[in-house]
Write a protein that binds this DNA or RNA. Structure first.
Lengths: 340, 340
DNA sequence: CTGAAAGCGCTTACAG
DNA sequence: CTGAAAGCGCTTACAG
């Protein structure tokens, strides 16, 4: 809580200096066209002379509006999220909004507090990339707040809310079908939290591809684990020493895949030769990795852009209809699954 | 600009409902201890009953304070920056502040606009990771604003401001000395903008190490280029086809090094065998890269934490003394320079 | 320990 | 096209 020592120049002082009323000065700062050119110039000159700085806080307060948007994400160090955030930011900024950022690190408690903080700060809208274990309490909280909001990357059932994300099921299906076509019959699915919609959707695709090939899934090859590099390592360790280890691995995310590959290398197992690995997200590193990682594009930046635009509409129109925007994923076949 | 349709419950209504005065209610929300337990309970109950949400905007407005801090960075997709941002965010959040985020993408114009926006939003303080080409105008703007501010990662001469960063000179010196000890005599320095303090500091270390070994620097081996993967590729291309190519490469950042390695691979030159490569930053990918990259730790997260703490002090004490916090870097020798 | 009044710096009706 | 007054939802002195 910082006390401002130096007091600001107010619009009133500007008005007095320019010899006009405060309301006239107010119209000038807001570029209202019904002010004569002469008056406008006079006021602008006074603003310059006095070093006036517009006070958006006071303005927003009185007009009961806000050009701040709250954006809550799980983890900025995750490339997928930072790309998403860039999409959100650039779009909102170009629309004249500024981003109030919160990071949950996937903690539901933190998420709850951040949502409250955002509402207390009277943001005009909220874009939320929900924590993977978002609970019934979160749902209740979200349904209560009247601030326009958009969910991104992960859907929450029972929340009446617009949503932007990728068709995870389709992405997983494409990846698995690719592996099946290569002749694999024992495919592991590593990483991700079983209760999260992002995992469930991938699982559907995983299952659908198996069903279409008349294959049953071996549950012991499905390991639920935090979607991080460490999680990937750990999940791999659990699956690789089985009597019948998998011949291919579908990873929840590229980050998980990097952990998996690292652990494979530590065991002298060569990805792309001894075992196939597929990731999800197509982060920039995937292409540069050694070996380059087969993965599914999920277009985080586009998701960000679309989420921002959607929120913008929500904020500026009384449009009641909920929207769900689902982007189509794309499979990139690289060396971790290219040898045939 | 979003108009709030549903009107909020005000503190006045809460007070009336609880049968106390507004000022008493105000003291309750601020946890002032001089309110009796009975009154407090009554008011809290009314808040609950009415679904009251504290309005920080109004509170900050009246008390002329702010618990929002503006953080302006060059690029979130850069791992160094996102790590820095995590340090800043977690620290500020634990101190009760929320972050208003701006990204300049290294554009000075954008930076200027973002600083203005932050000030107009009356942030309590600003943490700025300056764009590399920050101009005299930026300096003037920064010196004019009275908001407490801390510069991070890149120093601006002529700006009266606290600063937190790494000892880039020392880091570069360590890297070059390592290469010289390995017997290299023609070391290139690729990437980075010559006018930025981060480049200048590295150059000093580069030069000092050469001086100590009584070696002169070949200017043709120093290529100024945007510090990105692309910049690394391009810089390498300029230097590798010389009649006397370098035997080792010192890169401005790990990102540049990744570009350099990629371009080397494309030319079938093996980093760590045919040519040595050293990066700067020690991003998480450096260790995972193929081959693992020798690099210098610059501790972005610690920089973020320290910048946030420093700003916190600036905001809460009239401490006039400017501080410069310079972290010591650390050299990590890995495969791109380990064979001897 | 509690209350009535004024004010933070704007914008919003409403007059002219 | 411009002005005087009221008010956004709080907190701040100042009384009691």
């Amino acid at each position: 809580m910082k006390k401002m020592n130096k007091q600001r120049v107010t619009l009133q002082e500007v008005a007095k200096h320019a010899g006009v009323s405060t309301s006239t000065a107010s119209l000038v700062v807001r570029n209202n066209p019904r002010i004569s050119e002469a008056t406008r110039k006079k006021v602008l000159q006074s603003m310059e002379d006095l070093g006036y700085v517009y006070d958006r806080v006071a303005a927003n307060m009185r007009s009961k509006s806000s050009n701040i948007v709250g954006v809550i994400v799980t983890d900025i160090s995750n490339t997928f999220i930072s790309e998403f955030l860039i999409g959100v930011q650039t779009t909102l900024e170009s629309l004249g909004y500024t981003v109030l950022l919160g990071t949950t690190f996937d903690s539901v408690d933190k998420q709850e507090r951040l949502i409250s903080t955002m509402v207390e700060h009277r943001v005009g809208g909220i874009i939320l990339n929900p924590a993977s274990k978002s609970s019934a309490r979160t749902v209740k909280q979200l349904n209560q707040i009247r601030t326009p909001k958009v969910l991104a990357n992960r859907e929450l059932s029972d929340v009446q809310c617009d949503y932007v994300g990728v068709d995870y099921e389709q992405g997983a299906w494409m990846a698995i079908r690719h592996l099946l076509q290569k002749g694999h019959r024992r495919i592991a699915f590593l990483g991700g939290i079983k209760t999260s919609s992002t995992w469930i959707e991938r699982m559907k695709g995983f299952k659908r591809a198996h069903d279409e090939a008349n294959l049953t899934i071996d549950e012991s090859l499905i390991i639920d684990m935090v979607p991080t590099r460490e999680g990937g390592k750990e999940a791999l360790a659990q699956v690789i020493d089985q009597p019948e280890p998998p011949t291919a691995i579908f990873c929840f995310s590229d980050l998980v895949a990097f952990g998996v590959i690292q652990e494979l290398s530590a065991r002298d197992i060569k990805p792309g030769e001894d075992i196939d690995v597929v990731g999800f997200d197509n982060v920039p590193e995937a292409e540069m990795y050694h070996p380059p990682l087969t993965t599914v594009s999920s277009f985080p930046r586009s998701i960000g852009v679309k989420a921002a635009n959607l929120l913008y509409h929500k904020m500026n129109e009384q449009d009641e209809e909920l929207q769900r925007l689902i982007l189509k994923p794309q499979l990139h076949i690289r060396e971790t699954s290219s040898s045939s």
